[in-house]
Simulated assay, not measured.
Amino acid sequence: MQAFYEYINGARILDVLKDLLTNEDSNIRAKACSALGNMCRHSPYFYDSLARHHIINPLIERCTDPDRRTRKFACFAIGNAAYHNDLLYEELRKSIPPLAALLVSTDEDKTKANAAGALSNLVRNSNKLSEDIVSKGAMQALLKLVSECSVLALDPSRREAVNESPLKIALFSLGKMCSHPPCLQFLRSSELLSVIARLRQSQEPIICNYASNIMRKVSDT
């Protein structure tokens, strides 16, 4: 896959993609976000170029796009732009509020899962953004999402619905955030921590493991 990166870079398409992010056609905006996300999926090769071409800000703006598909792919692209290292973290700081807002919106579950995954990646490589994750409402939004999804997770008859929900990604993200003191302190004091404690009883092994992992970190002194 990476063998093609030099050819893509040589085609000098980033300025074109930047323009397409604000195209009047929502399908084009969505595909531009998807293309940027895939360009960052396997390697940080394009991170420098994204910064030089000032693409991060217009990409973040697509998280509040009127088109649902565009919002979904914008979250996907932001997550991949944060996955491999923290080079773009400072620019991506502005993405935290819109990502948090999507978690408690009426958007589809895939968009919420993408937003939760993106927030996880924003604490994956350093603690630069951990205080913003708390102060900009991302942890609270994740906890609300977990609370909303928890009823399904504890109902054995709704197991298939759980697999389609963003709950696993949200719990995984919270687990990653627990590695940073500001996030851990916030979680310890949250009234919604009891929801995660109950999820240790889920019959879905991944959910049970993620919830148990969070509670272990919270209990450690």
Rank of each mutant, 00 (worst) to 15 (best):
D48K: 12
R93Q: 13
L87R: 07
R71G: 05
S34F: 15
A74K: 07
I56V: 15
D48P: 03
N57I: 12
L103T: 02
E90Q: 15
R52I: 05
P66G: 12
R41W: 11
A101G: 11
I56S: 02
N38D: 10
I96C: 09
D67A: 08
N85L: 01
N85D: 14
R69Q: 15
A81L: 14
S105F: 03
G79F: 00
A101W: 01
S43K: 02
P44C: 09
A74D: 02
H54N: 14
S43D: 06
H53M: 08
N38P: 04
Y47A: 00
C75D: 13
L88A: 08
L88S: 05
M39E: 05
M39N: 08
F76N: 02
C63E: 07
A100V: 04
N80V: 00
P66L: 14
L36N: 04
P98M: 03
E61T: 10
L59A: 10
N57A: 15
D65Q: 09
A82E: 02
P97C: 12
P44E: 07
R71Y: 04
E90S: 15
P44R: 03
L92C: 08
R62T: 11
R41A: 07
Y45G: 06
T106P: 12
R52T: 06
N38T: 05
S95G: 13
P98V: 11
A101V: 06
I60V: 15
P44Y: 02
L59Y: 12
R69P: 04
I96K: 08
C33E: 07
F73P: 00
F76I: 00
D67L: 04
Y83K: 04
H42G: 05
L87F: 14
L102C: 08
I78P: 06
R93G: 13
A77I: 00
Y83V: 00
T70K: 13
C33K: 03
C40A: 14
N80Q: 06
Y45Q: 07
H84D: 00
C33R: 03
F73M: 10
C63L: 15
D65T: 09
T64G: 08
S95N: 11
S49F: 07
Y89C: 10
T70P: 06
N80C: 01
N57E: 15
T70R: 05
L36P: 01
I55F: 05
R69T: 14
S43E: 00
L87Q: 09
A101S: 15
I96G: 04
P44W: 00
